[in-house]
Amino acid sequence: MRRAYEEAGGRIAWSTPVTGVDPWPDGVRVRVAGGGETRAAHVIAADGPRSAVRRSLGTPLTGTTSGTDFVVVDVADAARPLPPERVFHYRHPGVGGRNVLLVPFRGGWRVDLQCADEKEAADFADDTAGWVAGVLPGHEVTWVSRYRFHQRVAERFVDDHHRVLLAGEAAHLFPPFGARGMNSGIVDAVAAVDAVADGDVGSYDRDRRAAAWQNCRAAGAACAHLLARTRADRLRQRGAALLAPFWEPAGRWLDSAPFGPPLRKVRY
């Protein structure tokens, strides 16, 4: 992709953090660290969840953040790789009855561990080898992080002059179910380029913001399903887990939330 971009005449400025933008009716001034600047007809800002471009536009993110902390771990495949299927464990005995989501990727797995609070998440992040072996024996930990799930969308994806377009996590933050952040970010980038080329930036704001809220609702449904915040939800979840080995619809309900494909297997 980088080679194709450069062959098309694009220029990459490495180690040049953007600090803000100043859009006008006929273009944009891009401010960079150290006091420098550059000019452009349009800017597509994909500068992440702490987007300096979004902040400089004064565009807030609206939505919610989960009150539960998670530890996310990447592990390399074992000598004998497991079948590549998304698996959700309710109350896994290897981690003291906590929920665990396993998502395969090429060459390994991502492990999401649901914790009660920030301190518990910090403790589990500091001792990954101690509990990952109980979830995925024989797998080597390659990366560890802690986070909270966000369901937030920028109030606008473009500025008043239709010169700056927000894309990816500069425009929206989702829980990781179904890889919605990366996949929607790729679509954002393509749609933003098309909108600039077609001279219809307003359609980008309308269409991609609607898609972001749709992803937010789906990810929120998955979050609510696994967190079971109310007593009724917890009783329903526990009852389904007890019935699932004997009654298939109960197992299907446990795995019915949009955690992401493939929806093949659930552990009780």
Rank of each mutant, 00 (worst) to 15 (best):
L101I: 11
L61E: 05
G260E: 06
H161W: 09
A78Q: 02
A154E: 10
E155P: 07
G20A: 04
L166W: 01
R80C: 02
E37V: 09
L165M: 01
V111W: 07
D205L: 09
A33G: 03
R110A: 11
D159C: 00
D74A: 08
E155A: 14
R252W: 07
G96I: 04
T64F: 09
R11Y: 07
A33S: 05
Y90I: 09
L173C: 02
V100Y: 08
V190C: 11
A221R: 02
L165R: 00
V158D: 08
R146N: 13
G96A: 04
V73E: 00
V266Y: 05
E118K: 10
R11A: 15
G9N: 06
D123K: 15
S56D: 10
M182Q: 09
A133M: 14
A116S: 15
R91G: 05
A241E: 13
A13G: 10
R2N: 12
R91D: 08
A167F: 11
G48N: 12
S256N: 06
L235V: 14
P137K: 11
L136E: 12
R180S: 04
G48H: 12
V53F: 09
V30M: 08
T142S: 14
A33R: 06
Q237F: 11
A240F: 08
A52W: 00
R163V: 00
F259R: 03
V103A: 13
R39W: 15
D112S: 14
P176C: 06
P83Y: 00
R106Q: 14
S66M: 06
N183S: 06
A170D: 07
G58Q: 03
P23S: 05
G199Q: 02
A121E: 07
A210Y: 01
G35W: 05
W109C: 11
P261S: 02
L226C: 03
G58S: 03
F259T: 03
W213G: 03
Y268D: 06
H161S: 04
Q151C: 10
A171P: 01
R2A: 14
F105C: 11
A154Q: 12
P93N: 10
A13Q: 12
P104W: 15
P261A: 02
D77T: 00
L227P: 01
T16E: 02
R146C: 13
H92I: 12
V18T: 01
A41H: 06
G108S: 13
V158Y: 08
F149M: 11
G108C: 12
A212T: 03
H172M: 04
G107Q: 10
D127S: 15
V87R: 10
Q114V: 15
E248R: 10
A241I: 14
V73N: 00
V153I: 09
V111K: 08
P17W: 08
F105G: 13
D126W: 09
A212Q: 03
